[in-house]
Amino acid sequence: MEKIKILALSDEFTLYCLNIIEYSENANDEIFEIAKKVKGWGRVHTIPYLEVTNNEIKEWILEEGCHNEVVPSYTALTCAKKINLLEILNEENISSKRFNNISYLVDALLDEGPVIGISALENREMLIEKYLEKAKYLSSSENDYLTVMMIKEYIEDSEDINNDFIKICDEILTSEKAKNNIKELMKKGYVFPDELIEKHGG
């Protein structure tokens, strides 16, 4: 088993090893350790096997579950379901750092080019609503503002999502707070789409 766990750290073999490790003693703990160490396809394959049995795993999935060297959207839907993303968005006190992690996950959910994401969630409209409620006062990073833009584009392309959310997205993106934050982020080298820069007279 020790040799299998070592072999699992190679992205090419992770999936095959997981099929053995999942039946071992303390399987979930072992899978969690592997998930933290692999970065490519290994992480993509590991996330579905990982059960949220404690808060440490839940927070790690929020922070790192979509961070891989392949495509973030490959694990976005699985991560959102495992940690109950809507439940997290319903929490009263969310730090800016935690909200940034949420933004990264929502952004990955919205990227449905390679795989289905947010469209597969039954509560997607409520999730968007709760996210935008938090974004009004928690947005501060590049991820946050780009995610709001992605939400706006997603709603514009959807026939069954409340169009009122578009107005909320615009209010967030054109606010004085957004203007100041985006200017500061650009000074640090962050790049934003021309559409967003033009909103602020850039």
Rank of each mutant, 00 (worst) to 15 (best):
V191C: 00
E153G: 08
S141R: 13
F192Y: 07
I94A: 05
I21S: 01
E153F: 01
I6A: 09
V191S: 12
A135T: 07
N84H: 14
E91Y: 06
V148Y: 04
E56S: 10
I197E: 10
Y145G: 05
K81D: 11
L121E: 11
K36I: 09
A76E: 03
S73R: 05
L62G: 03
G65R: 04
L127I: 14
R124S: 12
E2D: 15
I118T: 10
I161M: 07
W60N: 06
S73Y: 02
Y49K: 13
L18P: 05
T14C: 04
E22I: 14
I172F: 10
F32I: 08
I47E: 04
K3W: 13
K130E: 15
D29C: 08
I31S: 07
K81P: 05
D11A: 06
L109W: 03
G201D: 12
G117C: 10
I155E: 01
E142C: 13
T78R: 05
A35R: 07
L86F: 01
A80E: 02
N143Y: 15
E56Y: 08
E159D: 15
E112C: 09
N123C: 00
I47Q: 11
E56Q: 14
D164G: 15
G117Q: 06
T14W: 05
I88L: 12
D164A: 08
L9H: 07
P72Q: 09
P114F: 00
K58N: 13
I102D: 04
T53G: 08
S139H: 08
K179I: 00
G42L: 07
A35C: 15
F13G: 01
E91P: 03
S140K: 12
E112Y: 12
A108M: 08
C79H: 00
I4R: 08
K152C: 11
I197A: 09
I197H: 05
L50F: 07
K152S: 11
M126A: 11
T53Q: 14
E133A: 13
M186W: 00
K97Q: 15
E33I: 00
G40I: 00
D11V: 02
V106G: 07
H200Q: 03
D11F: 03
I172R: 04
N101H: 14
Y74D: 09
S158M: 07
L77I: 08
E12V: 01
I20A: 09
A108I: 05
G65Q: 01
T75F: 02
N19E: 15
D160V: 03
D11T: 04
S24I: 03
E2H: 13
S139Q: 12
I151R: 02
M126L: 12
A80Q: 02
